[in-house]
C-alpha cells in the first residue's frame, strides 16, 4: 500500500512539473504565433516596439553574438590546448587557472554586466556599444567554453599521442591533425553551449550594449539585443506584451535549435568514442 502510494506520489510530481512546463511553453507558442509574421523578423520596431518588427534588434543580437564568439573562441581554444597538452603536470598555475575558470562559470551575469560597464564601456572608452556588449559576453562564455574543450581534449586516448610521436610528428602537427579533429565534437558542443548562453543573456547587456533599437551603423553604436527587447517591452511598454511574446518565440526557437544541436553532437561524440575504444 505504502509502495503504491509512493509510486503515485512520484507520478503526481512528474505530472505537475510537466504540466507547468508545458503551460509556459504553450503560452509562448500560442501568444507568440498570434503576433508573429515573417515581416516581423525584418521590419523596424514602431511605437516603442508595440507594432512593427524586430529587424534591427535581430541584427544587433547577431553582431553581439559574433563579436563574443570571435573573441572567446580563439582565446578559449588556446587556453584549453595549453591546459590539456602543454601545462606541466600538477603545475600550480594550471590548477589555479582551472579553479578560477570554475568559479567564474558560476558568477551571476549581472556581475559580468557591472564589470563590462566599468572596464569596456568606461575604462576602455567604448561606451554603450555592440563591441563592449559582445566582449562582456565573451568574458562570460569563456570559462564554460574552455572547460568543455579541455575535457574533450583530455578524453582523447593517450595512444593517439604516442602514435603521433612514433610517427615522428611534431607536437604542433599532432595537435592540428590528430587531437583537434578527435576533440572536434566537444569543441563544437562547447561553442554551441556558449552561443546558447550568450543569446539568452539580458542582465549583462543592459549596461554594456544599451537600449537603442535603431539599426546599428557601426560596432561602436549602441544596439538592443533580443532578450533586452523582451525585457523592455514587458516592463516599460504598456501594451507591448504581444510583441514581447513574439520576440520570445523567436528567441526560444533560436536557442532550442542551438541546444538540440549541441545535445546531438555530444551524444554522437560518446557513441563514437565507444566505437573507437
Amino acid at each position: 500500500m505504502a509502495d503504491r502510494l509512493f509510486a503515485w506520489l512520484m507520478l503526481g510530481c512528474a505530472v505537475l512539473v510537466v504540466a507547468s512546463l508545458l503551460w509556459v511553453l504553450s503560452d509562448v507558442l500560442i501568444e507568440g504565433f498570434a503576433h508573429f509574421s515573417w515581416s516581423f523578423l525584418i521590419t523596424e520596431p514602431v511605437d516603442a516596439g508595440r507594432s512593427g518588427g524586430i529587424g534591427p534588434i535581430l541584427i544587433s543580437t547577431l553582431w553581439i553574438l559574433l563579436i563574443a564568439l570571435a573573441a572567446a573562441l580563439p582565446l578559449g581554444l588556446g587556453v584549453a590546448i595549453w591546459l590539456s597538452e602543454f601545462a606541466p603536470r600538477n603545475s600550480r598555475f594550471a590548477v589555479h587557472t582551472g579553479i578560477t575558470l570554475d568559479i567564474l562559470a558560476g558568477v551571476p551575469s549581472i556581475v559580468y554586466g557591472l564589470f563590462g560597464n566599468a572596464f569596456f564601456s568606461i575604462y576602455l572608452g567604448m561606451g554603450f556599444s555592440l563591441l563592449s556588449g559582445g566582449l562582456t559576453l565573451a568574458c562570460m562564455i569563456l570559462p564554460i567554453f574552455v572547460r568543455t574543450c579541455e575535457s574533450g581534449l583530455r578524453a582523447v586516448s593517450d595512444d593517439w599521442r604516442k602514435g603521433a610521436l612514433a610517427l615522428g610528428m611534431t607536437r604542433s602537427s599532432a595537435i592540428w591533425h590528430i587531437l583537434l579533429p578527435a576533440a572536434r565534437p566537444a569543441i563544437v558542443a562547447g561553442m554551441v553551449l556558449g552561443i546558447g548562453r550568450a543569446t539568452a543573456e539580458t542582465a549583462a547587456l543592459l549596461f554594456t550594449s544599451g537600449y537603442v533599437d535603431r539599426m546599428p551603423e557601426s560596432l561602436l553604436d549602441s544596439g538592443r539585443a533580443l532578450a533586452v527587447h523582451i525585457y523592455d517591452l514587458s516592463m516599460n511598454v504598456t501594451g507591448g506584451d504581444g510583441a514581447a511574446y513574439a520576440s520570445a518565440l523567436v528567441l526560444v526557437v533560436l536557442i532550442i535549435s542551438l541546444n538540440t544541436l549541441a545535445q546531438s553532437l555530444v551524444d554522437n561524440w560518446f557513441k563514437r568514442r565507444l566505437v573507437v575504444s
Binding site: 578559449g76 595549453w82 587557472t97 599521442r161 603521433a164 607536437r171
Partner: peptide, 29 residues
C-alpha cells in the same frame, strides 16, 4: 600533460607552447 608530449626540440612546437601559455596567462589575467 601526457607521456607522449613531454619535451620537444622543434622550434615551431616551442613557439606554439609559448603562445598558448601566453594566452592562458592572458585569460587568467
Amino acid at each position: 600533460m601526457s607521456i607522449a608530449m613531454k619535451r620537444s626540440n622543434n622550434r615551431v612546437d616551442r613557439r606554439l607552447g609559448q603562445i598558448f601559455s601566453l594566452l592562458s596567462a592572458g585569460a587568467a589575467l
